[in-house]
Amino acid sequence: MAKKQTLKNDDINEKKRLELYNTQYLIRFAEQRAYDLFLENLVKGTSHLSLGQEAIASGFANAMQKNDKSFCTYRGHAHTLARGASVVGVLGELMQRDCGLMRGKGGSMHLTDTSKGVMGSYAIIGAHLPMAVGSAWRAQYLGHDDVATVFFGDGTTNIGAFHEALNYAVVYKLPVVFVCENNNYMEYTPIESITAVKNPAADRASAYGLESIIIDGNNADEVYRTAQKAYAKARAGEGPSLIECKTYRLSGHSRADPGSYRPKGELEHWKKNNDPITRYRERLIEFGIKQNVIDDIENNVKELVDQATEEAKNSPVPPEDILTTNVYANGGWAWRN
């Protein structure tokens, strides 16, 4: 019988474990807050939450080094927060306030914080995969040691850009990690009903000479370990990885979605049996971490998000004069003299 894992013999130390939990809890709490703010009519436009998918963002971000780059989709709040972007900046952007990361000009689907390596969130499916490849090319070309990670959904594996980016990255052995968050749905359509293979990312890996990697995306430890391996490989000049993380989103596709396409009981099943936060909390206890340590993390997160919410609520809407700033590199929008 295998020896029971304890904090002492495990490769993930206590500090890292708590960080992994902290990030997940922050995402959970901030996303729930975003949803509440939407119900209060304070979040305008659309928003796509990562409730239920927190372990992926946490596992990868906690395995990254500071100069690593993240490329996200419209479902990008989690990855932006996981890299350490300010909560006020994120909530403020969702609320389209001047304190937002992009001062309300980008909105929920385009969160960007280059100071934290978040190279943008993109709302045209597939577009950011080749961009991550380009970032990796730059790293290789200039001899930098950063790795690009690109997060995308299961549905994204059916667009051409996914396939072009993979082949390209493999051909040039680029330091890029492709992370498919398979949450079972492309918007409202079950992924298996519109995809030729069962595992939309992993089953395509062999076509590009890559190892087929499928992991439990709701287990932050497993995500973290897999990420570490992929980053080590990339930094050693051994090229890209494609990782399919099985997960499930506990909210609608976007704020307008009541989720009526889900089979009865499915959501409840995942909530009850496979919520990454609940699972990780149990794991912490199993590893002998004291309840009060966990409580402290949760209370700190709540305080942080509460403060950020107030700050964002008090922030003015963006001033009208920024409508025409930053269209061109000179800061302005002039196209004629």
Partner: peptide, 14 residues
């Protein structure tokens, strides 16, 4: 105007 569209409602409206 010759600009990409902003997300913020007050900016989009102008």
């Amino acid at each position: 105007p010759h600009i990409p569209l902003p997300a913020a409602d007050n900016l989009e409206d102008i």
